[in-house]
């Protein structure tokens, strides 16, 4: 047997599966991915159904930034379009055009991650002060069990425990509450004494089950985007040479990448309404 073994059905369809082996492999991989995300979606449903009153937001839009996520959705849908156009151009023999569309797909994926970074960053600078007793806040119809907002400059700096990451409660805090849903006017800053405070948390994963699920699902999705970007970058760098050596094989590789990329975008299409709208 020669050192460079020939892999059968690398380009031509396998008689049993009806497709080349690479495509069959990527579909098997995507099936395992469906099980992974399916399990996480089920976890979300169970946690939400089992949450006590007031422990889960009415809908994610109360906490999360819907316009930013909508923008990201448009970016991802567009990236799927450019991905399939890249494959189509390559299949029709236009390597330069195919590589151009692949480059645009890479840039769109990068845009998605940059926007996600700003969305995450905002969450870590946004706080909620959980109270022992509900407190009346200007602009809100009912007394609040927790006040959400940003600490003012004259509020004492919070210190997090090195081991647990939980914030120590200072003597007092001054917080500018968020505008009530449906308005843009922030109530005046509120001073809260330590005796009234049960817990302080930013909107990171430790805030609540909802945000823990949000960060797990979107974080895992983000990692898949990074993985896709690595593959796309590889083909951007090596594509022209690869296509010259074996055009059909290169087209097949791009098709497999495109199948993965569509799956990742499809996951986001389900994540967005589940986390942000419902």
């Amino acid at each position: 047997m020669s050192a460079a073994a020939i892999i059968p059905h690398d380009m031509e369809p396998h008689p049993v599966t009806g497709m080349y082996n690479g495509k069959f492999g990527i579909w098997l991989f995507l099936a395992s991915e469906i099980m992974l995300f399916g399990a996480l979606f089920s976890t979300y449903v169970l946690l939400r159904m089992g949450a006590e009153d007031g422990m889960w937001p009415k809908h994610g839009a109360e906490i999360l930034n819907v316009p930013l996520a909508t923008f990201n959705t448009v970016v991802l849908i567009t990236s799927s379009v450019t991905m399939v156009l890249s494959w189509a151009a390559l299949k029709m023999g236009d390597v330069a055009k195919g590589q151009r569309f692949l480059g645009i797909t890479f840039l769109l994926a990068g845009t998605f991650l940059v926007v996600k970074y700003f969305e995450y960053k905002e969450k870590f600078h946004h706080f909620e002060v959980f109270l022992n007793e509900p407190m009346a806040v200007e602009g809100y119809q009912e007394p609040l069990k927790g006040i959400r907002g940003h600490f003012t400059a004259d509020s004492p700096k919070l210190e997090a425990d090195a081991k647990t990451g939980a914030y120590a409660i200072p003597e007092y805090v001054i917080i500018e509450p968020d505008a009530p849903h449906g308005t843009h006017e922030h109530p005046k800053p509120v001073r809260i004494e330590s005796a009234q405070v049960k817990r302080i948390s930013n909107f990171g994963p430790r805030h609540s089950n909802f945000l823990a699920t949000y960060f797990t699902l979107t974080g895992l999705h983000g990692l898949h985007i990074v993985g896709g970007m690595v593959v796309i970058l590889y083909f951007l760098l090596t594509g022209s040479t690869f296509a010259k050596k074996n055009h059909e094989k290169y087209v097949n590789r791009i098709e497999c990448t495109g199948l993965y990329w569509h799956f990742v975008d499809l996951v986001w299409i389900f994540l967005f309404p589940v986390l942000y709208l419902l």
Binding site: S80, V84, E255, H262, L266, I269, P273, L277
Partner: peptide
């Protein structure tokens, strides 16, 4: 299923999603 078929499915799902978001 080829990328073409998956893309058609993807666009159909996006259309349903867009309509749902419109109602939301």
């Amino acid at each position: 299923m080829s990328l073409k078929a998956f893309h058609v499915f993807f666009v159909a799902v996006c259309m349903v999603f867009a309509m749902g978001m419109g109602f939301w």
